[in-house]
Design a protein around this nucleic acid. Structure first.
Lengths: 121, 121
DNA sequence: CTGTGTGCAAAGGGTTTGCAAGTAC
DNA sequence: GTACTTGCAAACCCTTTGCACACAG
């Protein structure tokens, strides 16, 4: 399964790279300079996710948000903060600390704190 | 906005009370003895949620799961564990420990660890 | 030229809503 | 009797899929 470079991928990757926040498909579509189809955006994001280029957060609103994986936190679970006022999600760079009962195996962590951020408080 | 006791509410509350797991609407509908409409189940669950009778978890699959609030953990955020093999969610009774940057205000926490549980490992 | 990527439209799955009929109190 | 509840069907929203065409390598 080879991957090809296309304008759509470059645009989405560049947008994610320049954003401090985790973005959802609709926000990405709105912020892109070029018009890219909804389905294409999802396909590109899912490929980035498979290739560990981005991580995916599912928030309380049931929507998926995507953010670039920073090198030093790759495969490292961290908290996310969702501001319900400005409806953005940001990575808090705080590692998630937990212990699970014996026999349990954790593969992924989806931790989102919701409230109001510094700008909105 | 008064609340009335109805067979639907009693049945759903009793099912949630007897379950060790957080349940989604489809599972609730399937496990109920009496037939209750999908929309009604959601309305009852949302009312329970407003009244702090249950808490709501949104998992990576984007679905809502509901579990009875235990007295001693009311308003206390704890981890949840979702087993991707048997597709159940359970409350881990492990408090979520975090600190947020200055000016941030946390109202809710939605923390789900995903992996395989003791039975499925 | 071959196989990956894209747009479009439609389908899918979970959740909510409008409305008329039912029922708790 | 009044206001809350329910069932039904349809609407909504986010995400995925099928298919034909476009295009990167």
């Amino acid at each position: 399964m080879n991957r090809r470079n296309t304008p759509a991928k470059e645009a989405i990757l560049s947008l994610l790279s320049s954003s401090k926040r985790a973005l959802s498909q609709d926000v990405i579509e709105r912020q892109l300079d070029i018009k890219i189809n909804r389905a294409t955006i999802y396909r590109v994001l899912n490929r980035f996710y498979e290739d560990d280029i981005v991580h995916r957060i599912v928030a309380e609103d049931g929507k998926q948000y995507f953010a670039i994986c920073e090198k030093n936190e790759k495969n490292q679970h961290h908290f996310h903060f969702r501001c319900s006022s400005c409806d953005t999600i940001e990575c808090l760079h705080i590692p998630v600390d937990y212990k699970v009962p014996k026999g349990y195996n954790v593969k992924n962590a989806n931790c989102v704190l919701t409230g109001s951020c510094n700008d909105c408080s």
